[in-house]
Design a protein around this nucleic acid. Sequence first.
DNA 1: CTTGCATAAATTGGATCCAATTTACAATAT
DNA 2: ATATTGTAAATTGGATCCAATTTATGCAAG
Lengths: 244, 244
Amino acid sequence: MKVKATDIGQMASASDVIFDALRTAITDGSLNEGEVLRQDHIARMFNTSRIPVREALTRLEEQGLVTTQRYRGAVVAALSIEEIQEIFEFRALVESEVIHRSVCNISDDALKLATSYCDAFSASTEPSKWGDLNRLFHYSLYQECGRPYYLQIVNGALGRIERYQRVQLTITNGLERANKEHRAILKACVARDADLAAELTRRHILGASRSLTDFLKEHRGAPHAINAAPAGNATGKPARRTGR
Amino acid sequence: MKVKATDIGQMASASDVIFDALRTAITDGSLNEGEVLRQDHIARMFNTSRIPVREALTRLEEQGLVTTQRYRGAVVAALSIEEIQEIFEFRALVESEVIHRSVCNISDDALKLATSYCDAFSASTEPSKWGDLNRLFHYSLYQECGRPYYLQIVNGALGRIERYQRVQLTITNGLERANKEHRAILKACVARDADLAAELTRRHILGASRSLTDFLKEHRGAPHAINAAPAGNATGKPARRTGR
DNA sequence: CTTGCATAAATTGGATCCAATTTACAATAT
DNA sequence: ATATTGTAAATTGGATCCAATTTATGCAAG
């Protein structure tokens, strides 16, 4: 009998690989907002043609992570402070609902796992991992809500603002407060107090929004100047194309 | 001075045209769920190559309107009753929040417009227009919530279940109840009673969910047998490919 | 008549090529 | 020196072609 590809799981297509790589690069901040994504540059990085690159960029645009203009290419999406606030507020609404539903069914195993992520988060000294650990902690408490669509939406919303949240945690030392709030949320979940867990989650997210946007209002005279600017791009004009 | 394309607005690319056409065909039910979408068939319909078709399908998949398997192509997504219920419940959560925020700022013009859509909805005898009019009515009450991201999410959620809702309105004569509920919502908005408008919207959506899923549980022994099946496809096997 | 396998047809993912458009740059006029 | 304009380079959208894979069909064996 011939072995079909489906028997050993769906092999990732080239566009999937590119999509995943670009997505993580955008969400973790490796790619600065406003940065231009050239199709054949990316294609060369992955040793493919531009076709799968375009498919990946299309998907990223559909998720709101890049914006595209005809014949002008894709740039990493930049969110205004108002847009960031809106997404945090939306997360507060949906995630409080999600954790409320989840706590009712939550298993001891899930609580154990959440605790271990919580510990790892507070113990980690590697800023590049805070985003992942934070996400893993929260998601481990959401898993048993029985609402995959909600989780998908939450994931999309989080993907858009994760890069900013990481900056805020790193720079304003928001780690301590996040940690305390995580402990409180976890405690409420262990006690199976759904209302409390929901309310604490809501405040946790809105609080993070507050300190992040305060930070951005301070440090963002210009729209996109969080990370170090790439060399020679201090002017408003597009960077001159350097040779390949 | 040379006229740039951007000066006369963004010209729609071929993939945009195809995307829009397929999206409306899926949301309004012209394409049955489970139906297979062949790339070069669609390409021939639009006199293009398969490249822009693939881009359109990629975007539709990202929105959850089609599902794709490697080398096996795209099919119009079919939602289980549980998934439909979940999306309605999600809409109830988000749309009640949206209308609550909107009513605080709503203008008399917006109320006038909403009234005209409400009237058109109740007067219309054309089932194919109910979906549009229903959407226009609700959206006209949402416009001034000042939360574009919420509206974008609502639009995505609605796009997934619109086809089913249309079926329900058509078949179970849910029109009368929808109409009454629309009047009540509108009245609450005119009175600037945000809490009431939100609660009525919540119940309106959950009620629609209830009657739709009841209907589906009744009429859906087989997963995808709402609309008339295409000729010669009564068996579970895929239809034999007819000549081009 | 049904089942199993070999082979052909159909279909998708990706590479390469071409046209449309934008952007950079040099030459020129003011 | 600065603005302007024409041209070349860079870049994207799309068409056509090829390889990988799946699906259908025909033929032999039971």
